[in-house]
Design a binder for these strands. Structure first.
Length: 285
DNA sequence: CTATGGCCCTGGTTGC
DNA sequence: TGCAACCAGGGCCATA
C-alpha cells in the first residue's frame, strides 16, 4: 500500500498507539528487512528508547527515538510493495509474514512490521540524512509550487511518467497517483517533460496536489491484500480511480476505452482521447 | 543524458 | 483440474 496517501494514512493510524512508548525487546524474523545493520546493533539501538514521534517523508515513515528527552536516532521504515504496520496485544499469536516485532512497555503490546514480499525496510539510523536517498520536495509542501514545477519540467527531457515516479524529482508519487494525475491533467505519460506549455505544467501541478489531497481524505486506496488492515478501516480512494486498473472500461470523462501500456517498465493506464499521445520521436540517424 | 531490463520476493490470477 | 506464466501500489543497479 505504498504511495504517499497510503503511507500518510498508515503513519496517522499507528502514531497514537506507539508514540511515547518504550521499546522493551526486539525480534527480527527476516534479517534483510534491516538492510545491512545487524540484529545485535538494531536491538541495542532500540531497547530502552522511546518511540517519540511518528512522521512521514516521501514514502518513508520515520520514528524519532529518544532517551532521557534527547533524540537518539530514528527508525526508518519503507513499506515497499506490501509492507504494513500494526500494533497487537501482548498475547496475540504472531502471524505469517511478520518480519520485525518490537515489544512495547509497559504493557507488552507488539509493534509489528508485516511484509509479504520483503521489499520493505524497517531499520535504525543515527544519521537520517545519510540513511535516506536523495528526495525531491513533498508534493503537498510549500516548496512544491507551480513555478518550481514548471522549471523542473523544463530542466530535463524525460518522459512524464518516469519523471514523476522519480523520488529525487518529487517525493511520494507512485504508479497509481501518477496515472491518475496525468489523466486528470490530460497529459500522456510518454510526453516529454520539456515540451509542456506553462499552462499544461500548471495543470499537472494542480492535479497532482488535488489527487493526493483527495486520496488522503479517503485514507488512501485499498484492494487485494490491502483490503483490510488490522486496527484500520480500508481506504476508499480506489472507488475514485479514473484510469488505474480500469483498462477495457470506458473513460469516465469521455467514454473512450481505457488502455493499458507499459511505460518505464510499469503498467500504465491512459485514455488516449483525453491524453493525446506525443508524436513519435524522430529516429536517431 | 535518458531508457531499459534484471533483480530482490511472495502469492493471486490468468490462460493453456 | 493442474500447472506454468504473468502480474503486482517500489527501488536499486548495471548496461546501452
Amino acid at each position: 500500500m505504498p504511495e504517499l496517501p497510503e503511507v500518510e494514512t498508515m503513519a496517522r493510524l499507528i502514531a497514537p498507539s506507539i508514540e511515547g512508548r518504550v521499546v522493551r525487546a526486539t525480534k527480527v524474523e527476516w534479517l534483510r528487512t534491516l538492510r545491512g545493520i545487524g540484529e545485535a546493533r538494531f536491538d541495542a539501538a532500540l531497547v530502552g528508547r522511546t518511540l517519540a514521534r511518528v512522521r512521514r517523508r516521501a514514502k518513508f515513515i520515520l520514528v524519532d527515538l529518544e532517551r532521557l528527552g534527547r533524540t537518539e536516532g530514528h527508525l526508518v521504515i519503507h513499506l515497499g510493495m506490501t509492507g504494513r504496520l500494526y500494533v497487537v496485544d501482548s498475547g496475540a499469536p504472531s502471524a505469517p509474514h511478520e518480519r520485525v516485532r518490537l515489544t512495547l512497555g509497559p504493557s507488552g503490546e507488539r509493534f509489528v512490521f508485516h511484509d509479504v514480499r520483503k521489499f520493505g525496510r524497517f531499520t535504525f539510523t543515527e544519521d537520517l540524512a545519510a540513511a535516506l536517498p536523495a528526495l525531491g520536495p513533498e508534493p503537498l509542501g510549500e516548496e512544491f509550487d507551480a513555478a518550481w514545477f514548471r522549471r523542473g519540467l523544463r530542466r530535463t527531457a524525460r518522459q512524464l511518467k518516469p519523471l514523476l515516479l522519480d523520488q529525487s524529482f518529487v517525493a511520494g508519487l507512485g504508479n497509481i497517483y501518477v496515472d491518475e494525475s496525468l489523466h486528470r491533467a490530460h497529459l500522456h505519460p510518454l510526453r516529454r517533460s520539456d515540451t509542456l506549455s506553462p499552462a499544461a505544467a500548471d495543470r499537472l501541478h494542480a492535479e497532482i496536489r488535488r489527487t493526493l489531497l483527495e486520496a488522503i481524505e479517503r485514507e488512501g486506496s485499498s484492494f487485494d491484500v490491502f483490503y483490510r488492515t488490522p486496527e484500520g478501516r480500508p481506504g476508499s480512494y480506489q472507488h475514485q480511480f479514473r484510469v488505474y486498473g480500469r483498462d477495457g472500461r470506458p473513460c469516465r470523462r469521455c467514454g473512450a476505452t481505457i488502455r493499458k501500456l507499459v511505460v518505464g517498465g510499469r503498467g500504465t493506464h491512459v485514455c488516449l482521447r483525453c491524453q493525446r499521445p506525443p508524436r513519435r520521436p524522430r529516429p536517431v540517424v
